[in-house]
Design a protein around this nucleic acid. Structure first.
Ligand code: MN
Ligand code: MN
Ligand code: ZN
Ligand code: ZN
Lengths: 126, 126
DNA sequence: CGTCTTGTCTTGACGGATTCAAGACAAGAC
DNA sequence: GTCTTGTCTTGAATCCGTCAAGACAAGACG
């Protein structure tokens, strides 16, 4: 665990669902000389270690969060792209048994709810 | 409905879950001079018209399919990226009512099952 | 007809996000 | 004290998709 990794982990903790560019900016506050590659590497390492989780909604750059292992899902705004957490409505492993898995060995069911956030709703219907 | 659009639509019909590069190659068989931009434009037009659907699994380029309006989901292989259809196990609109939508107006619940396809399973455990 | 308008298509350059590749560096192993 | 290994920096490169400008074709309208 090196300095860049620790700062990246802290940044992800403090800014859930932030994209890489944002995290890079945040990490450079306490650690101005850090390279983008170090941040990318750290994010990959932390992801592989299971300390952070990557989410990649269509139309956004990769986002990261520190809330792992609790099988929660996300709502994404079609307008501004903001992401919020939603707990799984079904239970621990929602829908992890589809009708026909085609012989795949499944390890995750990813659920993304698409819609419009309150702000974007207000902006289009004033 | 112009020639490029028809060929793109046919290509999506014949190659479900193909990415844009593949579709471009397929369309150029009957229509060798078509430009990549025309294919991108056609795919967007067809998507907006609801004739095709775009899916963007993390780690893949955008893929298209002609099976629309039936609320089916996908299994994606972590090894080779292959995509297969799965019918919704829950019903018509699966999980469309999460525990807390944070005031979002939802219109779609997207479900992606992640795992390994039979081929990739066989390759790693010979 | 002849011209105008509109939308699609071609061409080529551009952009953002991520990865690749090479070397510098630092800390622990022996 | 030197070797080894892994991480970090730097800068170029790649991939996917978009932008922008002009060419072109077909229908509308006089
Ligand atoms: Mn989350
Ligand atoms: Mn499908
Ligand atoms: Zn919004
Ligand atoms: Zn596979």
């Amino acid at each position: 665990m090196t300095r860049p990794r620790l700062e990246v982990l802290a940044a992800v903790h403090d800014h859930p669902h932030a994209d890489t560019a944002t995290l890079l900016r945040v990490v450079r506050e306490p650690l101005p000389a850090v390279s983008h590659q170090a941040v990318y590497d750290s994010l990959h390492t932390l992801t592989d270690a299971g300390l952070v989780r990557a989410i990649q909604p269509a139309g956004s750059a990769t986002r990261y969060e520190a809330r792992v292992g609790d099988n929660h899902h996300h709502v994404v705004c079609r307008g501004c792209g903001v992401v919020a957490d939603v707990d799984c409505a079904v239970g621990e492993t929602p829908c992890l048994h589809p009708s026909d898995a085609h012989g795949f060995a499944l390890d995750e069911a990813e659920v993304v709810y698409w819609g419009r956030c309150p702000q974007c709703l207000a902006a289009t219907t004033p």
